[in-house]
Amino acid sequence: MAFALTPEREREVDELLTRYPERRASLLPLLWLCQRQNGWISPEVVDYVSQRLDLSTATVRGVVTFYTMFFDEPVGENVVWVCRTLSCDLRGGKAIQDHLENKLGCTAGHTSSDGKFTLLKAECLAACGQAPMVQINDRYYENLDVELLDQIIDAHVTKGAEEAAREFSTHATFGAPTKAPISTAPPPPSPEAVRLASQPPPAPDPVGDES
């Protein structure tokens, strides 16, 4: 069946087109709108987009396949990106991935059998000071350990993604889970240093180091 955007989103497209001197420049934002509605960039979406912007389907496909965030096959209800680049790995990124694979019952690159979660490995997500972290759908969850991760995943199942994000996502506070008071941050380490008052208190030392 042919793909069509909702009338509301169509109006957004009309506005998008005014932002750029060339029609083609709306391609990425338009693909985002479609993916948000459809969940992935299906062949029907490619047809729709190429007609809307007067581009060949090959051109549109070429762009879709270049970018990792455009899905060219269907994904689960929630997409979990686990960061495995150095800063996260130094703070336990691999343990986070292992735990997710056990919990969701699928390895990275696959979707859980109930269709609720697709697990993907991510490259650095610009949250290195709050490692380890995962991105679920379009929200970040930082300063993780496996207990917190369990709560976050469970909340996605029992309460839904939006409520889980409200409770656990760390964007608005730049690191601290929303429910933790911002004032728990330690004082600046030196008078001229300005610590961004958001991360939880300094991590306890790893087991075995000083004990």
Binding site: L86, S87, L90, R91, C128, G129, Q130, A131, G175, P186, P189, E192, A193, V194, R195, L196, S198, Q199, P202, A203
Partner: peptide, 16 residues
């Protein structure tokens, strides 16, 4: 300035 990895207090700092 950002610091990540094996420090007690990772995060962002403003400094000269």
């Amino acid at each position: 300035y950002g610091v990540s990895g094996h420090v007690r207090n990772p995060g962002l700092f403003e400094a000269p």
